[in-house]
Design a protein around this nucleic acid. Structure first.
Length: 1007
RNA sequence: GCGCGGUUAGCUCAGUGGUAGAGCACUACAUUGACACUGUAGGGGUCACAGGUUCGAACCCUGUAUCGCGCACCA
């Protein structure tokens, strides 16, 4: 490191060290190395979407994980940070479909399922690795040899095994239900994929005529067109109904009122004439008036139209009253023929307008009011959800109670700290087994949100009408052919709620290959159906040859993600295999999960349930929820706003370390982050400061890390050693509490303010300016000792910095020669494995004479420096002009301290005069360490100086009075603890001393 | 409607009952200095508001305002 450049150039070192770490397998976890002395530490990455590119959110998230992983390595643990990507069903299918349409003007249906999936894989091979390479640029120390993908071979087997297991237990079932249908992507969605958005729309009031009918014959099928009545009598009464969705009127099969509503109760049992479709004859549009408690008679007119096929609440009313369901829409959100001629084929929003026109034409529309309501939107496609009746696969969540109870809630007053410095383990922060096997959320308030959701959990709709994803391992056949009829007779019969009625068979007759078979009568058409579930490929082939067809749907992406913590570690579901899996045994459960609170339900909660269900243990002990990254104005970062900076640009401009440091510095626990590029600039500046501080050390020459002789230590040396000790302790606390912004604040303060601004400047007094070889023997010894202290500080500092700034610290670790003295596996090869600094213990402190008293004296002396500089400034003395100060010390100061004072005040001399009497042309200040005088050669500006002193006096008076008043209050003096009282007395004495001093100075000027 | 979080310097935020803090920004001064990606000094706050508890409140309690988020929703 002879010719180091003046400024740190990250571009020239980052790639070099990343490759160095990879070449030496520094990130590779080996379960064989795990022991009681070398405990395991593991994190699984929240797998980014294969379609993803690195965002600021990823930077935040992965920097935290990398910090945790690197810190754990330095703590001497065997670390596994397991990386990978998620196949992201809808997102990826969308990306490839758009590309297809743009480049080949084809739809996925034009290609066909098989060909389309081939294209997605090809796309994945080509572009799916982008985010991984970007994470490497950031410095992430993941074990890339274990990189996983949620659709790789082994993972596929995990998903199928889990599906079969849950099916066996009757937790996975198929059912015709109201689901959240996305008309844009044409698939069902889970409740979590729906976001409520406030919409400005209209509330339409229309009237319907009440009629008396008798002899109604209910229709055999959902279509109402066959309904017949013997008599239809007009009553002349009209009811008014308010709705936001007039286009669904053709799907109405009842009108509901609250049975307790005196206005309408009398109509229950009568019918109304549904106004649409207009061209249908009246007798085909008679729908009953029913009484249902659900109806709120405060809202609208108190009369509710009931559309069981297109509204969740209406569906339930329909179930209660056995109402027919009329589906008036195609899956793409366009109206079908049941909606009537003018609406047929129209998009649902266009249809709304037309429906209003039709109602107006027939005179049924009474009024239209502006109205704001909340509408569910498909999170990904950003279009309103259409509640739709459809047959889907559902999961009744397993392990709900266990999962719910394992997360510690805030009201648990038993200590919340779960990791603490363990004195037995050389001061390292250790994992203390959580009480009652509990899991901890950071910040803890998310536990309440989690608990609330777990308490109101609904079955999970897991099937998606997509092509890209894990295909549902279920095969169907209708027993039409003789072969299947014979087959079905050999297998158990089951009802429609058949999940519990399967039987296990080997269709292929190969040992170990099995299928779950159930046979049932379809309720709608009476046909005999056979449903077979298997995870076996052999069985699947057999099924295919027998004429079975596989369920066309795929599973929700999160149905694979929820297995991530153990599926990535090679879990098979086979107990004996898994108990011989060293990775799983060593690294599950993981220690920390770092993720955003936006996926607490999507992912975190589900992983916890899966952990209990399949591993019989929680998947992680701590969950750290990051904030959400916003721009300077507090807006969420998004592509459309264009307010999201490209992290790679920032790395190119400032360096990865700068980006990491800047991000961590502005990311307090539990708060959203307002991102400002200035933070990254600050990180860059900080790296440069570190660089130059090391450069300064290099310029001093001498051997690296020489012995420190306690006898030669200056008060400044002792002071900085104590500050280092404090910084180490603060860092440990910050890690225990997951407060990374506190950690960076500590590093910043310690290194920049305490080390560079004070210690290095003061050390120049001991280092001297003489050339090497021109120094006296005594100077030489003193110089060497100071350099040894500097090396001690720097070698510790670099290690404290390493988790945050991996690249520059590695470069300097080698450049400064600190690697050389260390054992190969403890910092000799790389700073990554250097031991994390321990707080200085009592033996160390007494050996080197480090005392709180000495620390205070240096701080008092430094205050004198600041005050003296202030005097210079007030006297308008140029910063580069050498002047003479006179010091009247409060207690004796060492010659070395006087020399430091002289240096830091840029003084020609600091003369110590215990009986100094200032002349008129002298400015002065009192500090705890003594009185400092600045005699001026010319006449001082008496007016200006008096103004300054008067202002000063005012301030002092105010402070002194405040304390005086407190002390004069007997209530205070009697009730307050002794130490506080003593402190106040001392403070008063201090202010009084200053007051006298300033008064004396004023008097001298006036004379 | 229910729940959660915020409101402290121009900005972004620390601050768990005892002298109101940091970084940035701002002003002034200093370029043969490890570093201008720098140094030194300075100005700047009624801690959202109103009550209460206390010798003492930014901090604890009650209420209000306001911003943000989550959950549940009335068609």
């Amino acid at each position: 490191m002879s010719e180091i450049p003046k400024a740190y150039e990250p571009q020239s070192v980052e790639d070099k060290w990343y490759q160095f770490w990879l070449d030496r397998k520094c990130f590779t976890a080996d379960p064989a190395r795990v022991s009681t002395k070398r405990p395991a530490y593991s994190i699984v990455i929240p797998p980014p979407n294969v379609t993803g590119v690195l965002t600021m959110g990823h930077v935040l998230n992965n920097t935290i994980q990398d910090i945790l992983a690197r810190k754990a390595r330095m703590d001497g643990r065997e670390v596994l940070w397991l990386p990978g990507t998620d196949h992201a069903g809808i997102a990826t299918e969308g990306v490839v479909a758009r590309l297809l349409s743009k480049e080949e003007k084809k739809s996925k249906r034009d290609l066909g399922r098989e060909e389309f999936i081939k294209r997605v894989w090809a796309w994945k091979e080509k572009y799916g690795g982008i985010i991984i390479s970007q994470l490497k640029k950031l410095g992430c120390s993941c074990d890339w040899t274990r990189e996983r993908f949620t659709m790789d071979e082994a993972y596929l087997r995990c998903v199928q095994r889990v599906f079969v297991e849950l099916y066996k237990k009757g937790l996975i079932y198929r059912g015709k239900r109201m689901v959240n249908w996305c008309p844009a992507t044409q698939t069902a969605l889970s409740d979590e994929e729906v976001v409520m958005k406030e919409q400005k729309g209209s509330l339409y009031y229309f009237k319907v005529e009440v009629v008396d009918c008798s002899g109604a014959v209910s229709a055999p099928s959902p279509a109402v067109t066959d309904r017949r009545y013997n008599e239809i009598n007009t009553t002349g009464v009209w009811l008014t109904i308010a709705t936001t969705r007039p286009e669904t009127i053709p799907g109405d099969t009842a009108v509901a009122v609250n049975p307790k509503d005196p206005r309408y109760a009398k109509f229950i049992g009568k019918h109304v004439v549904r106004p649409l479709p207009a061209e249908f004859p009246r007798e085909q549009k008679l729908i009953p008036i029913i009484g249902d408690e659900h109806v709120d008679f405060e809202f609208g007119t108190g009369v509710l139209k009931v559309t069981p096929a297109h509204d969740k609440a209406d569906f339930e009313i329909g179930q209660r009253h056995n109402l027919p369901q009329i589906d008036i829409m195609h899956p793409n959100g366009h109206m079908n023929e049941l909606a009537g001629g003018p609406l047929n084929g129209l998009d649902r929003f266009k249809a709304r307008k037309v429906a209003v026109e039709l109602l107006t034409e027939m005179g049924a529309l009474e009024k239209e009011e502006p109205y704001t309501n909340n509408v569910g939107f498909s999170e990904r496609a950003d279009v309103p959800i259409e509640p739709r009746l459809s047959e889907q696969w559902f999961l009744k969540y397993p392990g709900v109670e266990k999962a719910r109870n394992c997360v510690e809630q805030a009201d648990d007053s038993e200590g919340r700290v779960i990791r603490g410095p363990n004195p037995e383990s050389q001061g390292l922060a250790e994992l203390v087994p959580p009480k009652n096997g509990k899991m901890h959320f950071h910040p803890q308030r998310w536990a309440k949100v989690y608990d609330h959701w777990m308490g109101n959990i609904q079955d999970w709709c897991i099937s998606r009408q997509l092509w890209w994803g894990h295909r549902i391992p279920v095969w169907h056949a209708v027993a039409k052919s003789n072969e299947l009829r014979t087959f079905s007779e050999n297998y158990p019969k089951a009802s429609i709620s058949k999940a519990e009625f399967w039987a296990e068979y080997s269709l292929s007759e190969i040992k170990g290959e099995t299928s779950l078979v159930s046979v049932y009568q379809n309720r709608d058409d009476g046909e005999t159906r056979i449903e077979v579930v298997t995870e076996s490929e052999v069985e699947a082939r057999k099924l295919q040859s027998m004429g079975f067809t596989q369920d066309p749907d795929v599973l929700d992406t999160w149905f694979s993600s929820w297995l991530w913590p153990f599926a990535t570690m090679g879990w098979t579901g086979d107990k004996s295999q898994d108990s011989n899996n060293p990775t799983l045994q060593a690294f599950y459960p993981t220690n920390d999960l770092v993720t955003g609170p936006d996926i607490i339900f999507f992912w975190v909660a589900r992983m916890i349930m899966a952990g209990y269900e399949f591993m019989e243990d929680l998947p992680f002990r701590n969950v750290y929820f990051t904030g959400i990254i916003r721009d300077k104005q507090g807006r969420k970062m998004s592509k459309s706003l264009g307010n999201s900076p490209d992290p790679l640009d920032l790395i190119g401009k400032y360096g990865a370390d700068a980006l990491r440091f800047g991000t961590m510095r502005s990311a307090p626990l539990g708060q959203d982050i307002l991102f400002d590029e200035q933070n990254v600039e600050l990180g860059r500046n900080f790296c440069n400061k570190l660089w130059n501080a090391c450069r300064f050390r290099q310029m001093q020459g001498g051997e690296a890390q020489g012995e420190i002789d306690p006898k030669l230590l200056t008060a400044d040396d002792k002071w900085i050693l104590l500050k280092l000790d404090q910084a180490i302790r603060e860092m440990d606390t910050a890690f225990v509490e997951y407060k990374f912004s506190d950690a960076t604040a500590t590093l910043y303060r310690f290194f920049w303010s305490e080390y560079c601004d004070w210690y290095v400047e003061a050390s120049k007094a001991a280092l001297g300016s003489a050339e090497r070889g021109m120094r006296s023997a005594e100077q030489e010894t003193r110089h060497a000792n100071t350099v040894a202290v500097i090396d001690f500080i720097l070698s510790h500092t670099l290690r404290l910095f390493h988790p945050f700034l991996p690249f520059i610290t590695e470069e300097l670790w080698h450049g400064m020669g600190y690697a050389e003295d260390m054992p190969e596996n403890q910092g000799g090869q790389t700073i990554m494995s250097a031991p994390w600094p321990k707080p200085l213990d009592d033996d160390f402190k007494s050996h080197y004479g480090l005392t709180g008293d000495g620390e205070k004296q240096i701080e008092a002396r430094n205050e004198l420096v600041s005050q003296g500089r202030n005097l210079r400034r007030n006297a308008n003395i140029a910063a580069n002009k050498k002047v003479r100060f006179i010091l009247k010390p409060a207690r004796e100061l060492a010659a070395h301290d006087i020399e430091v004072l002289r240096l830091l005040l840029n003084a020609e001399a600091v003369e110590v005069k215990t009986d100094y009497q200032p002349s008129k042309n002298t400015m002065t200040v009192r500090a705890e360490a003594g009185d400092l005088f600045l005699p001026l050669e010319g006449l001082i500006d008496v007016e200006a100086e008096m103004t300054r002193l008067k202002k000063e006096l005012e301030k002092i008076e105010a402070e002194a009075t405040k304390v005086e008043q407190k002390l004069a209050n007997p209530n205070f003096t009697q009730k307050v603890p002794a130490n506080v009282l003593e402190e106040h007395k001392q403070r008063l004495a201090e202010w009084q001393g200053k007051r006298e001093h300033v008064k004396a100075a004023l008097a001298a000027l006036e004379s």
